[in-house]
Every structure is written in structure tokens, then in C-alpha cells.
Amino acid sequence: MLRLALLSLFLLTFKANGSLCAQETYFSDVPLGIDWIIVPQDNPMSAAKVELGKRLFFDARLSGNGTVSCASCHDPNKGWADDRKFSPGAHGELTTRNVPSVVNVGLHRTFFWDGRAASLEEQALVPLTNPAEMDIELGELENRLRQIDGYRSQFQAIFADGVTAQNVAKCLAAFQRTLVAGETAYDRFRGGHANALAGEIGRGSGIFFGKANCGNCHIAKVYTDHKLHNIGTGLDDTEQDRELAGQTGKAADGGKFRTPLLRDLALTAPYFHDGSKTTLEEVVDFYNEGGGKNPHLDPHIVPLKLTPEEKKALVTFLREGLRSNVYPQIEKPRLPK
């Protein structure tokens, strides 16, 4: 069962202008390596809200035809992601991007591969209304949930205005913020356990932050720089994804996707926004060759000239050194009739 900590912790979060401010939240019992979870001031955490969000996350009635839930693509048994390149929505149509894991999603500052959502609350409603995903109108969603006694009473106990689409989003976001994982070998090393990176894991760590320069974008501890980069993925697609350029209209933003988190990477194959790499070995080979050549390739992406032994050690670090000892395991909730 997932543990929900109910004690307070001083937390850093972000104002609309991007500056830091202090806030209280209920997170305190988090794994080593996870120091902060962003919680917006208009959606404070509560155990009741998290429990309701968990039920909604697993309930296929949140899709228009009642066939898929959030957990259909973000499957707890598949690293809270999907092991397919693309995932089918409510009507069997495949998504156009690989499903990312929602573990440690509370560490993110932007959401979706192109960073178009600024919060988990904003993100939550997009898959619900997307015709290729869950395909439900928000008014229909609200009416459907109001007709379910268990949901109606839960919403009324938490929110003064009861069932609304925005409150659905708040509950889904609150639940996902509790899906935290950490205490990897590298977290323990940073925590003062010098022998945590012994052997090949240690050699791979040295390559990750040294010769391979992975740490330029996958910054230590959070393993992301919260930015979007062009590494040359998806260039062979005849209907190439417009990525960040689709949001900004700038040609130079073509090919840019958000830097993903890396903890428990071994659980979430295939990799990249297009699911084009099926193994960590393929990922390392891609970077070793200098990514996918294109006019807007990020300057950090250059041939690495790793030896076979160095590549093997780097994969070992990614697979074993970033594997969490504390990982969200939950029982599927009982849904109201």
C-alpha cells in the first residue's frame, strides 16, 4: 500500500512568475533523494482528496465510452507507463507519443512532452477531452459523476461546489503527487554512503557525469533540467511531430522535447517521445553516435566515442544505479457503484 504522510514539511514551490516562495504541505515521509514536491496553493493536499483521486485514476467511467481509465496507459505494473510504443485510446486509435511514467511527476515544472501544461491540474483534463484518448466532454463527465452516489458524496465532503471538472483535475493531481520513488544507489551515495556506487555502477556513474555528459541535461538528484531539447528523435517520421515548435511557431523549436526524469528507467521502455528505442543499450548507442543530425540539434549532443566497456557500464548505472528501493505499490481501489 502507498504510504500517505500527514506531517508538514517546509516546501519550495513556484509562483506564476517563476520565483520561489515558501508553502506548507503534508509531505514529510518521502524517499531519500526526493526533497520537494510542487503543490499549488489552490490545491492543498489532503488524504481524502488523494483517495478520491486514486479512485478516479482507475475508473474507466471517466472515458466517454467507459473503456479506458488513466491507469490503462499509466499502468502500475508497467512502471506507471505503458510498454507499447503508442497506446490505444477509448476508440482504439493510437496516441502519437509514447506514454511517460507518472512516478515522481510532482517534481516536474511543465507537463507533456512539449511542455504545454504548467501544472498537473492543467494537464489532467487534456487526456480526458482528447478524442484520441478518453474522449469525454467535461459537462458529460460532471453529470456522470454526480449520478454516482459514492462520488457525489465524496466530492461534497471535500469541495464546497461538489463535482466539477476542475475538482476532478485537483483530485487526480493530488493522487499523482503521492507517487514518489527514490533511495536509488545514487541517492544513497549523495546521502553520504560512499560505497553505494561500487563496481560497475560506480564506473557508469563516472561516465554519466563525465565523458558522456548526461548530467548537462539530466542534472543530479532530479535528473532533469526542466527544459526542452532537440536530440534528433523522430526525424524519420513522415508526419513529424512539431514538438515545441507547435506551441511557439518558431522553426528553431522544432524537435525539442522535455528532458525526462531517469529514476527507474529500466521499468519504462520503450524510450523517447516516439518510443523509437526499445532498450537502454539502444538509447546509449543513439547518444554515442551523436543523436539524430538536424539543423537545430542541441549543441550538447555530440558523438561520445564511448568504448564497448564504457557503454556497458553506463547502461548498468542507468539500470541499477537509478533503480529505486522505495517505489509506489498500491492496491487498486474499490470503485463506487
Score class of each variant (00 low, 15 high):
261 L>V: 12
267 L>Q: 14
77 N>C: 03
187 D>I: 01
136 I>T: 08
331 E>A: 12
319 R>G: 00
10 F>S: 11
298 D>E: 13
285 D>Y: 03
3 R>V: 08
303 P>E: 13
10 F>K: 13
143 N>R: 15
2 L>H: 03
22 A>I: 04
21 C>R: 13
146 R>F: 02
209 F>D: 10
7 L>G: 10
32 L>D: 06
56 L>A: 12
174 A>D: 09
306 L>K: 09
317 F>K: 00
18 G>R: 12
120 L>R: 07
257 F>K: 06
148 I>V: 11
250 K>M: 04
11 L>C: 13
66 G>A: 03
268 T>Q: 07
103 V>W: 05
313 A>G: 09
54 K>A: 14
334 R>L: 05
190 R>A: 09
122 E>T: 06
83 D>C: 04
215 G>H: 11
327 Y>W: 15
297 L>G: 08
205 S>A: 09
62 L>C: 13
152 R>W: 03
100 P>T: 03
223 Y>M: 07
90 A>G: 05
62 L>I: 10
105 V>K: 03
308 P>C: 02
96 T>N: 07
6 L>S: 04
194 A>M: 08
253 D>R: 10
117 A>I: 03
173 A>L: 02
297 L>H: 10
323 R>F: 00
243 E>N: 15
169 A>L: 13
156 Q>C: 10
251 A>K: 14
90 A>T: 14
293 K>R: 09
322 L>K: 03
284 V>M: 07
207 I>D: 00
273 H>A: 11
204 G>E: 01
85 K>I: 08
65 N>R: 05
115 G>W: 02
5 A>F: 08
183 E>V: 03
76 P>Y: 11
58 F>V: 01
158 I>Q: 04
204 G>P: 00
22 A>Q: 08
330 I>L: 13
105 V>M: 14
329 Q>A: 15
321 G>K: 01
52 L>E: 06
234 G>P: 13
260 P>N: 11
5 A>E: 12
299 P>S: 04
212 A>T: 06
292 G>V: 01
332 K>W: 07
16 A>W: 04
220 A>Y: 02
233 T>C: 08
158 I>T: 05
58 F>Q: 04
47 A>D: 06
124 A>P: 11
134 M>S: 05
173 A>N: 04
235 L>M: 13
256 K>P: 06
209 F>R: 14
21 C>L: 14
305 K>G: 11
20 L>R: 10
132 A>N: 14
171 C>I: 10
93 E>L: 14
297 L>N: 09
93 E>V: 15
220 A>K: 05
212 A>I: 13
235 L>C: 12
107 L>G: 05
52 L>Y: 11
42 D>Q: 15
149 D>A: 08
61 R>W: 12
331 E>K: 15
200 E>R: 00
249 G>F: 14
291 G>P: 06
161 D>C: 04
24 E>K: 10
65 N>V: 05
126 V>I: 10
